[in-house]
Structure formats: structure tokens, C-alpha cells
Design a protein around this nucleic acid. Structure first.
Lengths: 189, 189
DNA sequence: TGTTTATTATCACATTATGACACATTATAT
DNA sequence: ATATAATGTGTCATAATGTGATAATAAACA
């Protein structure tokens, strides 16, 4: 670990804190090769900014910090289910706070409650890459139901979505269209 | 169990308390390999912070501890019963606050008290998938009574509901219809 | 009632946090 | 470029907190 900017070190502390449940001052000092005093000062700053919590002997994630996206204990903010990697949906708000949904279905419902500007990333159903949800194509109500019903699958590429739909049915919709479909009451076929 | 931060130990106590309903001082002391005195002090602190309740010989969860949706001990906001995964009902309000019901029966009653916009998710009776309750089909008063009476079962697919009804009776209703059925007084068959 | 068990109080000791200072590094102004 | 200000860093002394052992007190139990 050579030559790292103080602010970068602080960012790494926050990041690492979300993976581990807690870190000792010693662990941090050894890892970044600085004195314990420096870690103390870093943490004081992070606490003042609300990015971490200082406890005797070390630090823990800020009280309002949700488990990091992709970590095993992340829960859907809507239905409480565990978040499968396959269908992850992550929303980052203006203040950097994050929420996750178990699938685009819950993701859209979450979006309908949202206030203010936010970025939304969703996992492409075929390749697992994260894609800006506002630029993605969705297949709603196909025969493939992984999570919630009606199933909503996210595709980074429109042609992938079309080919999928040819085989498994469902409607092809963009973000706005899928949003309407999710929030409108209607009756099963 | 090596080298654990005091605050992390306290957090684990709270967590463990929500899983088990109660723990003795001895259990805790042995598990964390500290003296009973230390556990006493931990609990005093947790009590002062309202995170746990101290009882003679051990500790119990704080009275107001409401478990997260999907956790094993979440309680119905209407009747107080434990929420079975099979019939979970989750409502998210405008401000992001959440309530759960033990089954659609309590769910509809909860809804009748609701103010403002909200999203409602319910578990499909057959597959357990979460479905937007406003898009689901309900079978009311069938011979299958899991939770409250009259029993209300939730189906993501109308045809599933029809097939179920053919076997077990009851009325087929959409959200609005089931809502009326739940909130209208009527007399047994 | 006496006996047992749990809780609290107090002490000595270990660990950790904080403030003051000197010094290095980086930014800003002239 | 050079001086000056602002930050960042490490060491040390001191303060604050956590811990366990033991004794004193309170509560349950027979």
C-alpha cells in the first residue's frame, strides 16, 4: 500500500467498513501503514460527515448504512427478500444513500415512492452487467418468473430483449412504460 | 471468537436476542468469553439506549423491537400474530415506512385504515412470489383457512385462482372486490 | 426463616482515546 | 520562485473507558 491520498484512504475505510461489520484501529493502521493517531483523525472526520461510526477500539458502519450492494445480507427495501445477484436493483440518491430491490418489479415500486433525483442501476438478465435502468429495456410478464409477479426482466440491449420475448412472451417496455405497468391495477389474463 | 469490539459484541447481543426470545447472562458470557460482569454492563448500556430489556438472570428484546420484513419474527400490524412467509403482506407508505400483515385478510383491514398513496405487495399462495396486490386475484372464503377467517388467498395469476376455486370453493375477487368483502358486515352462510 | 442465586459497588489494572507539540507536506499568494 | 498559510503526520503524556475479581446488597426460593 504505497502513496495514497488521505481522502482516498478515508473512502477506502468507509468501503471496507461496509464489507466487514467492524474494524479495529490496529487493523486500519497496519493496513494503510499509518499511525493509530492518523486513523483516529480520519474517523473523527468521517463521523462528523456521518460516513462512519466510531466505537471504542475501532469503527463500525454509520447507523443508517445499508449492507453493501452485492453483500450476502442485503435485503429488498420493498418486500424484505434477499437480493439475488441476478436481478439486483440499486438506487443511489442525491446524498449518496443507497437502497436495493430484489428485482425490477420491486425496483419500480420503490421508484414510485422516490423523491428527488437519483441514479438507478439494474443487472442485465443475460450477462449480469449493471446498466442504467433508464436506458434499459424491460420484458414484463413473460413466462419466466424469478422473483416477484408479474416478472420483470432487465436487458441492456433492446435486441436481446426482443429475442427473449420471441421465446418467452411478455411485453417489451422502456423504463417509463414498465413503470406504468407496475403501478397500474389490472386483472390477470 | 477472538478479538471483538465491545460495541460489536453489544450489537450481536441485540441481534441474537431477536432470534432467540431470551438469553441468560451465562450464555452470553460463555459465548463471548467475557465475565458476567461485562455482560451486565453491556446490558445496562443497551437498556439505557432502549435496545434491550433486562430481566432477572438474562435479557430479552426491547419491547418495541419491530423486526424487518421477511425476518422470522415480524408481527402483523393488525392482529399481532407472527407473519408467515406464505401469506406475507407488506405495505410501503409515502414516507417509506412499512407495515406488515399476517395475511390478506388483515392486509385489507390495514388498507382500509390507510391514508395517502402506498404500494402493497403480497405473497402468491402457490409459489410464494411477491405480487403487487392491486394486480392480484383473491379467493375469499374457500375451505382453506390458514390464518384469519374468512380466509383470503392471494394469487398472482387469475387462472391459478380459478383452478384453486374449482377445488376448494370461495369467491374470486380482484383487489377492490376483496376489499369490499372484507370491510362489509354480513352474516354467516 | 435461612439458603441460594443474581445484581450492584468498588477496586486495581489494562486498553484506548485525546490534546499538545514538533515536523513534514501541500496549497496559495505575491 | 519564494514566502507564508493550511493540512497532515507521528510521538508522547494524560485522561477516559473497559475489564475482571471480590465484596456487599438485593431478590428469589424452600
Amino acid at each position: 500500500m504505497d502513496e495514497i491520498l488521505p481522502e482516498q484512504r478515508r473512502a477506502k475505510i468507509v468501503e471496507w467498513l461496509q464489507e466487514e461489520q467492524s474494524l479495529t484501529i490496529d487493523q486500519l493502521a497496519r493496513h494503510f501503514e499509518v499511525s493509530a493517531m492518523t486513523i483516529h483523525r480520519d474517523l473523527d472526520l468521517l463521523v462528523k460527515e456521518g460516513r462512519a461510526r466510531k466505537v471504542r477500539g475501532g469503527a463500525m458502519p454509520a447507523a443508517d448504512a445499508l449492507p453493501a450492494p452485492g453483500s450476502d445480507q442485503s435485503q429488498c427495501a420493498m418486500c424484505g427478500k434477499r437480493v439475488p445477484r441476478r436481478t439486483t436493483w440499486v438506487v443511489t440518491g442525491e446524498n449518496g444513500e443507497q437502497q436495493q430491490a430484489c428485482c425490477p418489479h420491486c425496483g419500480f415500486l420503490m421508484h414510485s415512492h422516490a423523491t428527488g433525483q437519483q441514479s438507478t442501476l439494474a443487472a442485465d438478465f443475460l450477462y449480469g452487467q449493471m446498466v442504467n435502468a433508464h436506458q434499459a429495456t424491460f420484458v414484463v410478464g413473460s413466462e419466466v418468473t424469478l422473483c416477484c409477479v408479474p416478472g420483470v426482466l432487465c436487458f441492456a440491449s433492446r435486441s436481446d430483449a426482443e429475442r427473449f420475448q420471441r421465446g418467452f412472451g411478455g411485453k417489451l417496455l422502456d423504463f417509463a412504460g414498465a413503470m406504468v405497468a407496475m403501478t397500474t391495477a389490472h386483472h390477470g389474463h
